[in-house]
């Protein structure tokens, strides 16, 4: 029972991060019908920028409390990623808006490779260790251990997601985003500048990615220039699981995927008699992706995909 609860806690933390990233995929898909495969790289750049700022601050010898250092790192990463997300759309997707879907998919993958290589040039190929800035004091909780960092990740993610839901469902910009995703031509007739809304979608998604980037690198204690690849694929899986294009779906899908992965990793050793170990963790995410695509392609909360005339 201890393992179960512990893995559940770990899964929720991981799931909160997946959810933040999945929201970026699902928002862009909702408006453009495009999978922004470079989104994982935005997460990575966010992690790298935050880490660089944090390292500089620590090296400067200015005595700042850990959480403040982390906050400054985040404050640098968020605008950098927003700018990057804006630029990705302008450079890679806008010129191809009228082109066949496949063209945009290929530039998305190309963008992802370019960003990885730029990051490799700037930050090198080595793994960077991320200093722990939040107290990792373990709290005992019904037989499971939970750290301050874990609590903080979940709370911050929940807060951000609540803010996003408010933005999308209660503000003028959010209404314009929903209208654009449903019918961009008519949204234009209402006075919505579609290009602005699309840019805002990329900017907001990238801000969430920056936060997720710092979270995941702080959680695992490591940052690397290809870290965005696997994380991006998993978050994409989470978005598909929840029903791509649906905000609630991305949140639910992220959380579920995190929990499935953690429980899977926790039990796979016992279940296979030690034949497979917990490093097979990644298998679960993609098993889920295949199962969803086969049995429920529209995802848990997605609308049934129907042919519209």
């Amino acid at each position: 029972m201890d393992i179960f609860l512990q893995q559940l806690v770990n899964g929720v933390v991981l799931g909160a991060i997946y959810a933040l990233v999945a929201l970026g995929y699902t928002m862009v898909y909702g408006i453009l019908g495009l999978i922004n495969f470079a989104h994982g790289e935005v997460v990575m750049i966010g992690a790298m920028v935050a880490l660089t700022v944090i390292q500089l601050l620590l090296a400067s010898g200015v005595p700042l409390p850990g959480p403040v250092v982390a906050a400054i790192g985040l404050a640098a990463a968020i605008p950098t990623c927003m700018l990057l997300g804006f630029a990705i759309e302008r450079v890679a997707y806008r010129p191809l808006r009228e082109a066949p879907r496949l063209a945009a998919l290929i530039t998305a993958i190309g963008m992802s490779i370019v960003l990885q290589n730029v990051a490799m040039i700037i930050w090198g190929r080595r793994y960077h260790s991320v200093p722990s800035l939040l107290p990792v004091t373990p709290h005992q909780f019904a037989g499971a251990t939970i750290t301050d960092l874990q609590i903080f990740i979940v709370l911050l993610a929940a807060l951000i997601m609540a803010g996003l839901l408010y933005l999308v469902h209660r503000t003028r910009l959010g209404r314009a985003m929903r209208a654009t995703s449903q019918n961009p031509e008519v949204a234009g007739l209402m006075g919505v500048n579609i290009n602005t809304v699309i840019s805002m979608t990329f900017i907001i998604g990238s801000a969430l990615a920056a936060v997720a980037g710092l979270m995941v690198s702080a959680y695992y204690g490591v940052a690397h220039y290809v870290m965005g690849f696997m994380l991006g694929l998993k978050a994409f899986t989470a978005a598909v699981l929840g029903g791509i294009g649906n905000l609630g779906g991305a949140m639910l899908g992220g959380l579920l995927l995190g929990v499935i992965e953690s429980l899977g990793a926790g039990y796979i050793g016992t279940l296979t008699g030690g034949f497979l170990g917990s490093h097979y963790q990644d298998v679960f995410a993609f098993t889920v992706l295949i199962l969803v695509l086969v049995f429920r392609p529209s995802g848990l909360l997605g609308e049934r995909v129907t042919e519209r005339s």
Partner: peptide, 8 residues
Amino acid sequence: GRGVFARL
């Protein structure tokens, strides 16, 4: 065809 936003 009216172009009503169906999910608004």
